[in-house]
Measured scan of single mutants.
Amino acid sequence: GMDVRRLKVNELREELQRRGLDTRGLKAELAERLQAALSGPSSG
Rank of each mutant, 00 (worst) to 15 (best):
Gly1Cys: 15
Gly1Ala: 12
Gly1His: 14
Gly1Arg: 13
Met2Ile: 15
Met2Thr: 08
Met2Gly: 07
Asp3Asn: 10
Asp3Val: 08
Asp3Pro: 06
Val4Trp: 04
Val4Asp: 03
Val4Leu: 08
Arg5Thr: 13
Arg5Asn: 13
Arg5Met: 08
Arg6Phe: 09
Arg6Met: 10
Leu7Arg: 03
Leu7Cys: 10
Leu7Phe: 05
Leu7Met: 15
Leu7Lys: 04
Leu7Gln: 03
Lys8Cys: 08
Lys8Asn: 15
Val9Arg: 05
Val9Asp: 06
Val9His: 05
Val9Lys: 08
Val9Ala: 07
Asn10Val: 10
Glu11His: 04
Glu11Met: 05
Glu11Asn: 03
Glu11Gly: 03
Leu12Tyr: 00
Leu12Glu: 01
Arg13Phe: 06
Arg13Leu: 08
Arg13Lys: 09
Arg13Glu: 04
Glu14Lys: 11
Glu14Phe: 10
Glu15Ala: 08
Leu16Met: 02
Leu16Arg: 00
Leu16Gly: 01
Leu16Ile: 02
Leu16Glu: 02
Leu16Trp: 00
Gln17Tyr: 10
Gln17Phe: 11
Arg18Ala: 09
Arg18Ile: 09
Arg18Gly: 05
Arg18Ser: 07
Arg19Leu: 15
Arg19Tyr: 03
Arg19Asn: 05
Gly20Ile: 00
Gly20Thr: 00
Gly20Asn: 06
Gly20Leu: 01
Gly20Gln: 04
Leu21Gly: 04
Leu21Pro: 03
Leu21Arg: 04
Leu21Tyr: 00
Leu21Ile: 08
Asp22Tyr: 00
Asp22Asn: 11
Asp22Gln: 07
Thr23Lys: 06
Thr23Glu: 07
Thr23Tyr: 05
Arg24Asn: 15
Arg24Tyr: 04
Arg24Gln: 15
Gly25Lys: 02
Gly25Met: 02
Gly25Arg: 01
Gly25Ile: 01
Gly25Ser: 01
Gly25Phe: 00
Gly25Leu: 01
Gly25Asp: 02
Leu26Met: 12
Lys27Met: 11
Lys27Thr: 08
Lys27Leu: 13
Lys27Gln: 11
Lys27Glu: 14
Lys27Phe: 11
Ala28Val: 09
Ala28Lys: 13
Ala28Trp: 14
Ala28Pro: 10
Glu29Gln: 09
Glu29Met: 06
Glu29Tyr: 02
Glu29His: 06
Glu29Ala: 09
Leu30Val: 01
Leu30Trp: 01
Leu30Gln: 01
Leu30Phe: 00
Leu30Asn: 00
Ala31Arg: 14
Glu32Trp: 05
Glu32Pro: 02
Arg33Phe: 02
Arg33Trp: 03
Arg33Glu: 02
Leu34Arg: 00
Leu34Lys: 00
Leu34Trp: 00
Gln35Trp: 08
Gln35Val: 10
Gln35Leu: 15
Gln35Lys: 10
Gln35Arg: 13
Ala36Ser: 09
Ala36Gly: 08
Ala36Pro: 02
Ala37Gly: 03
Ala37Thr: 05
Ala37Ile: 07
Ala37Lys: 03
Ala37Ser: 07
Ala37Leu: 05
Leu38Phe: 04
Leu38Met: 10
Leu38Ile: 13
Leu38Glu: 04
Ser39Met: 13
Ser39Arg: 13
Ser39Tyr: 10
Ser39Val: 12
Gly40Asp: 11
Gly40Lys: 11
Gly40Asn: 13
Gly40Ser: 12
Gly40Glu: 12
Gly40Arg: 09
Gly40Tyr: 09
Pro41Glu: 15
Pro41Ile: 14
Pro41Lys: 12
Pro41Gly: 14
Ser42Val: 13
Ser42Phe: 04
Ser43Tyr: 12
Ser43Ala: 13
Ser43Lys: 12
Ser43Trp: 12
Ser43Thr: 12
Gly44Arg: 11
Gly44Asp: 12
Gly44Ile: 13
Gly44Leu: 12
